[in-house]
Measured scan of single mutants.
Amino acid sequence: EDEVKKIVKRLIENGVDDEQIKEIVKRQGVDERIVDKVLKELK
């Protein structure tokens, strides 16, 4: 989960929008619920 957080944070800093972040992270095989949780925490 910490790995996911790092990735998502980097994507947000690069101006990637939420939908794209979800797609990218899902392609890495991460559960969507984890992605949603991380996005909420970082906003």
Rank of each mutant, 00 (worst) to 15 (best):
E19P: 05
N14M: 15
V25Y: 05
K43C: 04
I7G: 02
V4Q: 01
K22S: 03
E3Q: 11
R33D: 12
I7E: 06
E13R: 11
E1K: 07
D2R: 07
V16I: 14
V30D: 01
V30I: 15
E19N: 10
V25P: 00
K43M: 09
I34L: 13
R27I: 06
D36R: 07
D2Q: 10
K26P: 01
K9M: 14
K40A: 14
D2F: 08
K40S: 11
K6V: 11
L39H: 02
E3C: 08
K5A: 07
E41T: 06
E13H: 08
V4D: 00
E13K: 11
K9I: 12
L11Q: 01
E41R: 05
D36P: 01
L11F: 04
E13T: 07
E23L: 13
E32G: 11
I21S: 00
Q20V: 11
L11A: 02
D17K: 11
V38M: 08
V38N: 01
V4C: 03
D2S: 10
Q20S: 13
K40D: 09
Q28T: 13
N14C: 13
N14W: 13
I34G: 01
R10S: 13
D17M: 10
K37D: 04
E32N: 06
D18R: 09
K5I: 12
D36S: 09
V25R: 00
R33E: 12
R10C: 09
I21M: 02
E41F: 07
K37T: 05
I24M: 10
R33Y: 13
E3N: 08
E23A: 13
D31L: 08
D2K: 08
R27H: 08
D31W: 05
I12A: 05
V38Y: 08
E13P: 01
V38L: 12
D2V: 08
K43G: 09
R27K: 13
E23K: 11
L39V: 03
I12S: 04
K6T: 10
I7Y: 10
I34N: 02
K6S: 12
E19Q: 12
V4P: 01
V35P: 00
I34F: 06
K9N: 07
V8S: 01
I7S: 04
R33I: 10
I21G: 00
K5G: 03
V4E: 01
L39R: 03
E32T: 09
D17G: 13
K5P: 02
D17R: 10
Q20E: 13
D2I: 09
K22H: 06
R27N: 11
L39S: 01
K43Y: 11
I24S: 03
I12K: 12
V4F: 04
R10T: 13
D18F: 14
K43Q: 10
L42D: 01
K22V: 09
I34H: 04
K9T: 07
Q28M: 15
E32H: 08
Q20R: 14
D2G: 08
K6H: 08
I21H: 00
Q20D: 10
K37W: 07
